[in-house]
Amino acid sequence: MALQERQEPDVYQENFEPTSYLEYYRMNQDPIGDEVLHFLLKHYNATFKPGGLEGKLLIDIGSGPTIYQFLSACESFQEIIATDYTDKNLQELEKWLKKMPGAFDWSPVVKYVCELEGNRDKWAEKEERVRRAVTQVLKCDVLKERPLEPAVLPPADGLISSLCLEAACPTPQACRDALRHLRTLLRPGGHLVLSGGFETTFFMVGDKRFSTLPLNEKFLREALQEAGFIIEKLEKVTRAAETHLDNRSDYTGLFFLVARRGD
């Protein structure tokens, strides 16, 4: 099958500025960021709490420059591998992992997750746990049959991917193919934890506009089934009224789902 060709010029590699994108994640300072973070973090907490999903290896697909998606998972997976398509995002992620000067301050978000877990005061310990858990930061392209090539990894117990597919996939067929590609990274019975926005056609990073593939629940259910996944949980929320006037993105709602590789 022919690979979906990326549009030229490569807008993400050239124009996506991680430091501008991270402005969304200054907790209690950005209404859109807060809406997305509160929704995702609560569901990550519920998914990875004791008795929930666990295992040895977790791969995050399309990490961007963010670490919020690791904060609950690092408690139930021994090793996390972060991945992204753009070099700048990988560099920004490494900056935080290695405590380099100028790294983004995630502590308000970390404290919020620790509060969900019952002890806000353990935030510094949580940050160190994340740094220990994330053992590799790799290039990733979900449009490739082997998204992580040239890296060769054992089959993962879990995959997470947040706000990635709608940005990475230019067409519905590309999204179907991407889910099929991701399935190959999972062991039989392993889980995919997927989240994002509904009906999003664009989002802004600083003054740069990025087009996205509008997803809806019907399409997601069909595409996941076609790719060999069984959905175990799908949570959704309508966009809050107070963010509707914010013209940096046009998403209509958010989703969070857990699906198992059916074999």
Rank of each mutant, 00 (worst) to 15 (best):
S63M: 10
E92V: 05
N45C: 03
L165P: 11
R260D: 02
T66C: 08
L159Q: 03
G196W: 05
N15T: 15
L93M: 13
H181G: 14
D121G: 11
T238E: 12
N119I: 06
F203Q: 00
A73N: 03
E75Y: 08
T184N: 07
G51L: 01
R176I: 12
E23F: 06
P9M: 01
K144F: 03
V237F: 11
P188S: 12
L179A: 08
G62H: 07
R120Y: 11
K42R: 05
L163F: 09
V237I: 13
S211Q: 14
Q136G: 13
E125S: 02
P155M: 03
T238L: 11
A124E: 03
H38C: 14
E125F: 01
V130F: 01
Q225V: 07
S211C: 10
E79K: 07
V134F: 00
D87F: 06
N28K: 09
K218E: 10
P147F: 08
A133L: 10
E128Y: 13
F256D: 14
R187K: 15
L57Y: 04
G33W: 00
M100P: 14
E127P: 14
G190Q: 13
K42C: 08
T47E: 00
D10H: 08
A178H: 01
A223V: 09
L71S: 02
R6N: 12
A168D: 01
D246W: 00
R129V: 15
K95C: 13
K122I: 00
L41T: 04
D250A: 07
K95G: 12
L186M: 15
C169P: 01
P50A: 11
F70E: 08
P150G: 01
